[in-house]
Computed example of a mutant assay.
Amino acid sequence: MKILNSWSKKRSIANRYNITSNSYDEQYTQEQTAKYIAAQKTLNQLQYATILDVGCGSGLFFSHVTDKAQMVIGVDFSHKLLLKAKVQAKQFYNVHIVQADADHLPFKKTLFDVVFAFTMLQNMPAPKKTLLEFKQQTSTNGKLVITGLKKAFKLTAFLDLFETNGLTLFEFIDDPNLNCYIIIA
């Protein structure tokens, strides 16, 4: 029954994003760009990196990293948002799009130098499990850059997700101008 509830929640979220896909960029570009800029200020390892953007939505993040990265893979569960991301990806030689469940990513373990997940963790039925999947996708010296929506996570609960998964926090950003916490682990 737990698996059915989990799947049901994920389908519901995907349907919500499918419905709002036409207005997604208009609604979220400014907010998401502020997060991208804040997160990247602390990262110096993007040059020639293999990057995974989980919950890539319409591909807004691609233009912020493609000039530095060797390869960027955008993953989302929403088919209609991925159609928009595919249009964005055509502008770049090193971006690939995959429809997948963030809890069951179809990639070789430890493949990515940096795993980004902006404003998606609160949509997952078991965020702790999702973080574990991200950790498994990250190379030995790689980084996770994860945001947590402040209205969805109490600060202590958000930090606890990382600690209970054995992740070391390198940077924590709690900018009052952002609606998310940003953690680099």
Rank of each mutant, 00 (worst) to 15 (best):
Q136G: 10
D103P: 06
G142C: 12
I146E: 14
N165Y: 14
P127V: 10
T130Q: 12
N22V: 01
Y28D: 00
K86D: 07
K41A: 01
T50H: 04
T119P: 04
N22E: 09
Y24F: 15
V98D: 05
V145W: 11
A69V: 01
I182P: 04
I183L: 15
A157H: 14
I19M: 11
Q88D: 04
N179D: 11
L4C: 03
Q91Y: 05
L149T: 13
V115H: 04
V87G: 03
V54W: 00
S63R: 10
Q122W: 07
F112N: 12
T119H: 10
N18E: 03
C56G: 04
I51Y: 02
Q27K: 14
Q99W: 03
A69E: 02
F62S: 03
K109E: 14
L159A: 12
G166R: 12
Q136L: 15
R11Q: 10
Y17V: 07
I184N: 09
L52T: 04
F118Y: 14
A14L: 04
Q70L: 04
K143M: 08
C56H: 02
E31P: 00
F170I: 06
I3N: 07
Q99M: 11
K84C: 05
F158D: 13
I97R: 03
F172L: 13
N94T: 08
A89P: 09
R11A: 08
N44V: 00
A69R: 02
E133Y: 13
K41W: 00
K128I: 12
L52E: 01
F61P: 03
T42I: 02
H96M: 09
H96I: 01
E171G: 06
I173W: 05
T119S: 14
M124Q: 15
G55Y: 00
W7C: 01
K129T: 15
W7S: 10
P127K: 08
K86E: 13
L161N: 13
S78T: 04
I19G: 00
I73S: 03
V72E: 03
A185P: 15
K9W: 00
L46C: 00
I182M: 05
T42Q: 08
R16P: 00
S21M: 06
I3R: 06
L82Y: 04
L81M: 07
N179T: 04
L149C: 12
Q45A: 00
K2N: 08
G166D: 11
A89S: 14
K9T: 02
K143N: 15
K108W: 07
S23T: 13
F62I: 01
L81C: 07
T168W: 08
H79E: 11
V75Y: 01
A69D: 02
D160S: 15
W7E: 10
Q91H: 13
K80F: 05
A39R: 01
F172R: 11
N5R: 10
N18Y: 00
L155I: 12
I51W: 01
L83R: 13
K80A: 05
A85V: 09
